[in-house]
């Protein structure tokens, strides 16, 4: 089956709050224009469309239907949607191109977390009969995960602060990042706990944002990008939802997906880690050594638009290939509580 390449990527500014609607249209229209300009493609050239978003985040049913208004979908389009991070929408589009039915696809994700209380909304992802009624919120669950690693000696609070300091320093060079700055890891440790043992710097900000990627069959990719990023592997897996039934300091689904794609010789990795300790779990699961550059964009810790941040990791990894800074890049996306579901992609020049 034929290969597929990323040929265009754009994202909306990562910001705490936007004035637009929860269907993302105001964030999507400008970035659609950007990827059309990058690739020279127009709406009528796109063979398949696929998006990722959440009705619960939007506080309404069918928010993705209104998002279609950002496309101008008439004449009608060949289109689908996943109720997941748009990294999985990219997976569906990747399948579609591989079947040979279409040569190009546009994938987008959007999330306006400012419309609600994100950490409580995400509690509704938990088992509705036995866990969700207790309202353990997403930051609290991540705190339990971080605590397990601290108690077992897998990481220290200083290790976590260093992840945050590096991410924020890298984000200084990213004009679309929400959080950035140069910090000393030790300074960060003087901050109070938000959810013991997590401090503000350990937790991705609440972000409004959107991202878009254009894919093309590899044999046509050179028409749309000077240095297309060929997807040489893409795999995803899910772990048990039962928080007490798995070792939360590991990520078996990431390990399995990483093994399936092959992570050797990767020069740079964009990891979707909304909490500092989760970056450490992911690096171990993927076998990424100290020689692999992690999150040059600043990563999700400096801007985490729900349902778009995973897709943006693939886009940032592709940017590394587009710009010639790397020949082989890894991208990762996560979904669900405590890194439950994970996708790993490898992109090559």
């Amino acid at each position: 089956m034929r290969d597929v390449a990323v040929v265009g990527f754009a994202q909306a500014p990562n910001v705490r709050s936007t004035p637009g609607t929860t269907n993302g249209v105001e964030m999507l229209v400008p970035i659609f224009a950007q990827v059309y300009e990058q690739t020279g493609l127009s709406k009528s050239d796109i063979g398949f469309w696929c998006s990722g978003s959440s009705d619960y985040l939007a506080g309404r049913a069918f928010s993705f239907i209104s998002a279609v208004d950002a496309i101008g979908a008439f004449p009608p389009i060949n289109e689908s949607h996943v109720e997941m991070d748009a990294a999985w929408a990219l997976y569906e589009a990747w399948l579609k191109i591989r079947t040979g039915e279409v040569d190009t696809a546009l994938v987008y994700g959007f999330g306006k977390s400012s419309a609600g209380n994100l950490r409580r909304t995400l509690a509704l992802q938990l088992d509705p009969y036995t866990v969700a009624p207790l309202w353990p919120d997403s930051v609290g669950i991540a705190g339990l995960q971080a605590r397990l690693g601290l108690d077992s000696g897998k990481w220290s609070e200083k290790d976590l602060a260093e992840v945050a300091a590096r991410s924020r320093a890298d984000a200084v060079g990213n004009p679309l990042a929400q959080v950035s700055g140069t910090h000393d890891g030790a300074d960060l440790l003087e901050a109070p706990y938000v959810a013991d043992p997590l401090r503000a710097h350990d937790i991705a900000p609440v972000t409004d944002g959107a991202a878009v990627i254009i894919l093309a069959a590899a044999e046509r990719a050179a028409e749309y990008a000077r240095r297309p990023a060929i997807i040489t592997g893409i795999e995803h897996r899910i772990d048990s939802p039962v928080l007490g039934a798995r070792d939360l300091t590991r990520s078996p689904s990431t390990e399995a997906a990483g093994r399936a794609v092959g992570t050797g010789d990767v020069e740079v990795a964009e990891l979707h880690a909304p909490f500092t300790h989760q970056e450490l779990i992911l690096r171990e699961a993927l076998g990424l050594g100290d020689d692999v550059r992690i999150n040059p964009s600043g990563g999700a810790l400096t801007g985490n638009p729900m349902f778009a941040a995973g897709l943006a990791r693939i886009g940032e990894a592709a940017n590394q290939i587009f710009s010639g800074r790397a020949r082989k890049a890894l991208a990762h996306a996560t979904s669900g509580p405590a890194l439950q579901q994970n996708l790993v992609a490898v992109l090559e020049a």
Binding site: Y56, A61, Q125, L126, H236, I238, D239, S240, P241, G336
Partner: peptide, 28 residues
């Protein structure tokens, strides 16, 4: 998801779906 009042129920249903350790996609 509002029809059941559960956000992305496939996450908490992964074991029951036999999906644990496998790829799982949710379409809407």
């Amino acid at each position: 998801d509002l029809f059941e009042g559960v956000m992305m129920p496939e996450l908490s249903l992964a074991d029951a779906l036999g999906a644990t350790g496998k790829p799982l996609l949710r379409v809407h």
